[in-house]
Write a protein that binds this DNA or RNA. Structure first.
Length: 483
RNA sequence: CGGGGCAUAGCGCAGUCUGGUAGCGCGUCUGGUUUGGGACCAGAAGGUCGCAGGUUCGAAUCCUGCUGCCCCGACCA
């Protein structure tokens, strides 16, 4: 548009200047011009991607998710407990965050975004500036004002709430954000599992009374069950200690993984209980209460809360003791913050009351690691389809061969055009190396395109999870993978 | 914060005890031959040995201090 402001002769120079500046994107567009615009970010040629895989795991990585994330080129450590997400890791993180977001929205929670930096004064109001201890990273700005890198956001959300909401008519309200947190752990470890900087979805509910707050709690409870199920995980809610955040109703959501950091005990029925359906009515108090009761009626506890006598009441063939990873935590804490911070609403019956609050956390960055812990084998990661960085890998087993090249291009473009996330391994590597890479980064479906199969008009589709391989025509593969 | 360990090329490691011109594998680059489970041959590039001091004719190696990272424990999304 503003090009027209150039004198005639200048337009050419301006245009070529732009071409220079945007040379890389233009080159990409040219190569991908058969794809609709929206698909360009979904489809990727490995030869042009940034995915620095490692054959050997770096020495510092001890646990499997940490090793595999480093080997798959998903992240890079920059300091103890602090990681850069590389492109492959970011794709997974974003897919997890999107699912978390969808389920929060479905439950009626509303997204906003609070800053990572917070003024200390807010925390002095709640009394937590002194109480939180050294885990809170404290900073002074240039004017010597006390600031902090937020470890959580109860104070700030309460400040926002009290600034605008005055009436019971505006309740219930649940506000959430997905933002980086910083907790200066004494001993960060296990890669993303216990980092110092981590991504957290934290939601905060506001209700006029305890009954309302319990309904809000149940909404999150159900949303969490759905979220973890969609991420391909079996989650088990376990009664939890309320810890430093305070309150009196709290559950941890634990997923089972052999390498999990805590020991858990539960009733076997948890493992095949049906996930609440997509169309569950979040406004139906009784229905949500029923789901909550069903999911909390049987024994489930981490070693901290374990009661051996109660566990012994579970029939022997139903006793499960396993290892687990905490991936979510929900709290109801009443008026712990609303009272000191004066977040009050008119009740409609004369007078104000402090609102009843709850907070609800899920760590998407920890989930990246937790999913790997729960789903991997000797060869590498086995991504659940919903969070895989790419759903399909197209492997050209004989790079430079005209026939395999053409078949791969067709599949690559065909999948991309249908909106499938596809990674096309068009590198010079040998077939074996490509198999190893595809398995390492855990692509759910891998299409092997080589001269041997192509001679009979076939490609091979491999399922990463089951290991099954099937020969079929490229058209059948396209059909299968876009279904 | 207590205890233990590590730091040498992009990654994994040897060399340190017993001081004497810094090595191996993988990866990278060039050329060629290859191509269905981490190919082969030939050649090449790449390191102030974590940092600072000290001892010595000479330090990756010995001494002192510091920093970073990992593991176990206590603590935690």
């Amino acid at each position: 548009m503003w090009l027209t402001a150039f004198p005639e002769g200048e337009q050419v120079r301006a245009a070529s200047f732009l071409a220079l500046v945007f040379w890389r994107p233009i080159r990409f567009h040219r190569a991908a011009r058969f794809l609709p615009a929206d698909s360009e970010i979904l489809a990727m040629r490995l030869s042009r991607y940034f995915m620095p895989i490692l054959k050997e795991p770096p020495r510092e990585a001890e646990i499997v998710s940490h090793r595999l994330m480093l080997r798959a080129g998903m992240m890079r450590q920059e300091a103890a407990g602090i990681y850069a997400f590389l492109p492959l890791g970011l794709r997974v993180l974003n897919k997890i965050s999107d699912i978390v977001r969808e389920e929060q929205n479905r439950s009626g929670a509303i997204e906003l975004l609070m800053p990572t930096m917070q003024p200390a004064d807010l925390w002095r109001e709640s009394g937590r500036y002194d109480a939180y201890g050294k885990e809170m990273l404290r900073i002074k700005d240039r004017h010597e004002r006390d600031m902090l890198f937020g470890p959580t956001n109860e104070e700030m959300i309460t400040e926002i709430f009290r600034a605008y909401v005055r009436s019971y008519k505006d309740l219930p309200l649940n506000l959430y954000h997905i933002q980086w947190k910083f907790r200066d752990e004494v001993r960060p470890r296990f890669g993303l599992m216990r980092g110092r900087e981590f991504l957290m979805k934290d939601a905060y509910s506001f209700d006029v009374d305890q009954a309302g707050a319990e309904h809000s709690y149940n909404k999150m409870f159900v949303a969490y069950l759905r979220t973890f199920a969609r991420l391909g995980l079996k989650s088990i809610p376990m009664r939890a200690d309320t810890g430093p955040i305070g309150g009196n109703l709290s559950h941890e959501f634990i997923i089972l993984a052999d390498t999990g950091e805590s020991e858990v005990f539960c009733h076997k029925d948890f493992l095949d209980r049906a996930t609440p359906p997509e169309d569950v009515n979040f406004d139906d108090r009784a229905a949500l209460k029923t789901i909550f009761d069903t999911w909390t009626s049987q024994y489930a506890a981490t070693s901290d809360m374990h009661d051996a006598a109660a566990f012994a009441q579970v029939p022997a063939d139903k006793q499960v003791s396993a290892r687990g990873i905490e991936v979510g935590h929900i709290f109801y804490f009443g008026t712990k913050y609303s009272e000191p911070m004066k977040a009050v609403v008119a009740t409609g019956q004369g007078g104000d009351v402090p609102v009843h609050m709850g907070s609800y956390g899920i760590g998407p960055s920890r989930l990246v690691a937790a999913i790997i812990e729960a789903s991997h084998d000797e060869a590498g990661i086995i991504w659940p389809e919903a969070v895989a960085p790419f759903k399909v890998g197209v492997l050209n087993l004989k790079q430079g061969d005209a026939a395999t090249g053409a078949a791969c291009e067709d599949l690559y473009r065909g999948l991309g055009a249908k909106g499938i996330d596809v990674l096309y391994d068009d590198t010079d590597k040998g077939a074996g190396a490509k198999f190893a890479t595809a398995d390492l980064i855990g692509l759910p479906y891998q299409v092997m395109v080589g001269p041997r199969g192509l001679a009979e008009g076939k490609v091979e589709v491999k399922n990463r999870k089951t290991g099954s391989k099937e020969l079929m025509s490229p058209a059948a593969a396209l059909d299968l993978l876009t279904r």
